Computed example of a mutant assay.
Amino acid sequence: MQTHAIVGGRVVTESEIPGCPSPVEAFEAVFAFRFDKYIRKKGFTGSGNMAVRKNVFEDVGGFRRAVSEDVDWSHRALAKNYKIIYDPSVIVGHPARRNWQELRKKFERLSREGYLLIKDKPRGRLKWFIRSFAVLLSPFIHVLRVLAAPELPRLADRLAAARILFAIRTYRFFEMNRLLFTRRTS
């Protein structure tokens, strides 16, 4: 914090039974809380492992409700020319989602929040529709990450995570289009 105003760190998922993740926990071990990717490629840090100087937080303002508050906040910080850096030595643990219901609920919330951020922007709804198809097709690429995941040393866990990958991305495709084609999103 002495050299950077905003720092995002690494988040490690924790299974209920260490070394024996459920299929959803295995999926989360590979895909959840990729703060390195969020910061370097998407321009935001999650609030679960974020350190911010007080004066910077006050300048940017607080979190807004009903949107992806950490994405929104980070984008407002970047608009004010603050830089967000990733520091992998700043580590927190977070319980992985344990079952399908918890994972589904997470992606329903993220989809709703993401849709609210984009829907009123120019061509926002069209971009959302196109993105839904990218989500549907993404498991065919991301399955390679699962099968080579160092976070999952056992083949059985990798295969279970791959199954969840295909299932949740299919679910997200339908959820994204439900949001797009229904009037109410809250």
Rank of each mutant, 00 (worst) to 15 (best):
A5Y: 13
I6D: 04
V7N: 12
G8P: 02
G8H: 03
R10V: 05
V12I: 01
E14L: 03
S15C: 07
S15G: 10
E16A: 07
I17F: 08
P18D: 06
G19C: 10
C20N: 15
C20V: 00
C20K: 12
S22I: 09
S22Q: 09
P23K: 12
A26T: 02
F27P: 15
F27T: 00
E28L: 15
A29P: 03
F31H: 08
A32W: 05
R34V: 10
F35R: 07
F35P: 09
D36P: 00
D36N: 06
K37R: 07
K37M: 07
K42Q: 12
G43D: 03
G43V: 03
F44T: 07
F44L: 04
T45F: 14
G46D: 13
G46E: 13
S47C: 07
G48P: 07
A51L: 10
V52N: 07
K54G: 08
V56S: 13
V56K: 09
F57K: 06
F57S: 15
E58G: 02
E58M: 06
E58F: 02
G61S: 11
G61Y: 11
G62K: 08
R64H: 07
A66Y: 06
S68A: 05
D70F: 12
V71N: 04
D72Q: 02
W73P: 00
H75T: 13
H75N: 05
R76Q: 08
A77W: 01
A77K: 07
A79G: 11
K83N: 08
K83A: 12
K83P: 15
I84A: 14
I85M: 11
D87Q: 06
P88Y: 01
P88W: 05
S89Q: 07
V90P: 15
V90M: 13
G93D: 13
H94Q: 14
P95S: 05
A96F: 06
R97Y: 12
R97F: 05
R97N: 12
N99C: 15
E102P: 09
L103Q: 07
R104W: 13
K105T: 06
E108F: 10
L110N: 05
R112C: 11
R112Y: 04
E113D: 05
E113A: 08
E113M: 10
G114E: 11
L116D: 15
L117I: 04
D120S: 15
D120T: 11
R123A: 15
R123E: 14
G124Q: 03
G124T: 00
G124D: 06
R125S: 02
K127T: 00
W128R: 01
W128S: 02
W128D: 01
S132I: 03
F133C: 09
F133V: 06
V135L: 04
V135I: 08
V135T: 12
L136R: 14
L137V: 13
P139L: 04
H142K: 01
H142P: 03
V143M: 14
L144R: 15
L147S: 11
L147V: 01
E151S: 08
P153I: 00
L159T: 02
L159D: 03
A160M: 11
A160I: 06
A161K: 09
I164C: 03
F166W: 04
A167Q: 11
I168G: 13
T170R: 15
T170D: 13
Y171T: 01
R172V: 11
R172F: 08
F173Y: 09
N177I: 04
L180M: 05
L180N: 03
F181S: 02
R183Y: 12
T185P: 12
